[in-house]
Design a protein around this nucleic acid. Structure first.
Lengths: 163, 163
DNA sequence: TCATATCCATCAATAGATTGCCATATCCTG
DNA sequence: CAGGATATGGCAATCTATTGATGGATATGA
């Protein structure tokens, strides 16, 4: 069994096929996430991306002084040009404000406005219902496992992206 | 232990938090998929979505007569308006053709052109390398498990979408 | 002080993705 | 044959997301 074989073995072909299905499911699930998630919070004029930004800003660590754009970029892993546009819409909607920081004049702190805090709080019921419905068939153990696997996939993809 | 408690329990809060992280990872992984995937096949002027369409059309079942738009919609789970635009670009690039079908005049079969077949074949090396790199840390067993979990998540989200 | 690096914003182009509405052609059934 | 259902396409609006190029304000270090 020590022969050299440059053709894909049967197991390699199966792995390739599974990888194919895996990325198709990721593609489908992502589209469904945006479609259903935006519908779930549409009452508040929000989208899934804006939901993600509000969620980042409402975390305890960010609650007091907000986050810099750079920190938000690292958290969400999107391009700066994209985030700027989302922040513009959130600022226009009055949910977020950009404030200059004392120590370093280059930095801006993105913070929830009081209206942003209220809106985020009001959205919580819809978000909870959304999670409950989407994950109805998932024991908590499976939620954790899916999170861990997606986290590793994210790491693998980030390595390709190179940033 | 039969008391009624309307406040979220500690385990409920933990599950909610994990769900939050899970969907953030899905969001990040999806963006990275499009970013790195498009880069991987950019040499062929393609994107991840076009890659998905070409992959669907090159499956053995679709190889002979192609797929109808409706079948492609069901496979990819995207909106008709979105798919039309992608097909337009693929048609302009000469990789795909729309042909009327004999039996039912309403249907159109989307098929790979011979150039589309060649391009798809040429892309295989890049795709294989992409999968290998992205899933370098994944034993095949984990690839299968992630696929299964994403498939179930897709099902849960599709239930919300209602179609 | 001067050069360089960092942080943020802007403009432009392209592609993807959704909803909503309307149009057209075709099939099928009553 | 008439009418409803089906399959596809077109148009419009909005939002997300990327790359690329440019510019301005500020910090840091030589």
């Amino acid at each position: 069994m020590d022969m050299i074989d440059t053709l894909p073995s049967a197991t390699d072909a199966a792995r390739f096929d599974t990888a194919n299905r895996l990325f198709l499911r990721l593609y489908q699930a992502s589209n469904l996430l945006h479609k259903t998630g935006t519908k779930a919070v549409s009452h508040y004029g929000a989208t899934t991306q804006q939901w993600a930004v509000l969620g980042a800003l409402s975390r305890p660590a960010a609650r007091d002084h907000g986050l810099t754009v750079k920190e938000l970029l690292a958290f969400l892993m999107v391009s700066r040009q994209n985030l700027t546009a989302v922040l513009d819409r959130l600022e226009t909607a009055g949910l977020v404000e950009r404030t200059r920081i004392a120590g370093d004049g280059r930095l801006r702190h993105i913070r929830l406005t009081s209206q942003g805090v209220d809106t985020w709080r009001a959205m919580q019921d819809s978000i909870r219902t959304y999670y409950d419905t989407a994950l109805a068939d998932f024991p908590t153990e499976d939620v954790v496992q899916l999170f861990r696997l997606l986290d590793r996939l994210k790491t693998g993809l980030a390595r390709i992206a190179g940033d």
